[in-house]
Amino acid sequence: MPTPAWSTNDDGSQLSAGRGETALTVGGTFVFNPETGKSEPKPGTSPVAEDPYQYMADVHCRSGGSDTPDRGCLTMTCPPKTPGGEAGTPVIWRQAPKSITNPVWTDYPAVSGPTCLYGPQPGNVLADIAARILTDFRQLPVNPGTLQAQPLPHTLKGAPTNLYTSTTEQSFNVTILGQTVHLTAIPTSYTYTFGDGTTLGPTPATGYSIPQSEWLTTDTRTSHAYTDTGNYPASVTTTFTGTYSVNNGPPLPINGTLNLTTPPITIQVWKTERALVADTCEQNPQSWGCPGTEPQ
């Protein structure tokens, strides 16, 4: 059996992949969800915690191998993607617990039947993708979302100004080293920069819109009270974690994050003044404090 290919991840952990019974192993704490057929974060833990399973692309899916014609292995072909290019190799994705030495590999339930891997050494291709996936992840055209404020553009000094953001999980299909790779960017935390030298976060709170009747009176988890008048550029930085899968293989965690900041919005902070007046604005539109009048 050929020797597996090894690569080192950013955190010093090793990724391994090769022909035969070897596995592509990555750091990160995931559990298998039979309802979705995916490896997902365990509730209450970090989205990049360690997956208890290891995976491999079994290249025995060919004549003389361990699989039979009814699996589609012997009849499946993987033609070159480009003229004169190399033909692909049919593989079956398998999984096994990391905690077991010399495990019995079982078919990965989320992928039925063989899929194609391209490259003269499929295992090496998987390891090479794993070694560079964070760089490719950080180059995706992920939308950072938007920042909203209530009220906007004017708010009052000392009153709570409600800020909230909106962004979504985003998926991309790209080609890396000749392989089809599906990447998913998942927003997980937010850091609010209020423009006056203060910040909030990172926090999992996206905030939310509140009724106009509650503006300037209601504190929310993401509201902020400005202590001085002026114009302040506010923004929010979203931290995305990610997963990737190669040629419809199992989703694997990306060991690293992507941080994106929204364009700033200008919040104009005013102050209030009180005075006794003889008439209402309906009685005298030129009365002190009425719209369009100059401060006295």
Rank of each mutant, 00 (worst) to 15 (best):
T3P: 01
W6D: 02
S7A: 12
T8L: 01
T8A: 10
N9M: 15
D11Q: 03
S13L: 12
R19V: 12
A23G: 04
L24E: 06
T25K: 07
T25Q: 03
V26E: 03
T29F: 02
F30W: 14
F32Q: 01
T36C: 06
G37Q: 00
K38C: 01
P47A: 08
D51L: 00
D51A: 00
A57V: 00
S63R: 13
S63E: 13
S66Y: 05
S66H: 01
D67K: 10
D67M: 14
T68P: 02
D70F: 14
R71V: 15
T75C: 09
M76Y: 02
K81Y: 00
P83D: 12
G88I: 09
W93P: 07
R94H: 10
K98W: 05
P103A: 08
Y108L: 08
A110L: 05
P114E: 05
P114W: 06
T115M: 06
C116R: 06
Y118K: 03
P122R: 03
G123E: 04
G123D: 05
A127W: 00
D128L: 10
D128V: 05
A131W: 00
T135N: 04
D136H: 12
P141R: 03
V142Q: 08
N143R: 03
G145H: 00
G145M: 00
G145Q: 07
Q148L: 05
A149V: 01
A149F: 02
Q150W: 02
Q150K: 02
P151Y: 07
P153E: 01
K157E: 15
N162E: 08
S166M: 03
S171V: 03
F172R: 04
I176G: 10
L177I: 07
Q179H: 04
H182A: 13
L183F: 11
L183A: 10
T184I: 15
S189P: 09
Y190P: 13
Y190S: 13
T191V: 11
T193G: 13
F194S: 02
D196T: 14
G197A: 10
G197W: 14
T199C: 09
P204M: 04
I210K: 12
Q212Y: 09
L216N: 12
L216A: 15
R221D: 08
S223I: 13
H224D: 06
Y226S: 13
T227G: 11
T229L: 07
G230T: 15
T237M: 10
F240E: 13
T241M: 14
T243Y: 07
T243A: 06
T243P: 01
S245D: 11
V246M: 11
N247M: 12
P250Q: 15
L252Y: 09
P253Y: 14
N255K: 08
G256V: 15
G256A: 12
T257Q: 12
T257I: 02
L260P: 15
I265Q: 08
I265A: 05
T266A: 13
R274M: 05
A278M: 03
A278T: 15
D279T: 10
T280K: 06
T280R: 04
C281H: 09
P285C: 05
T293R: 15
P295W: 12
Q296K: 10
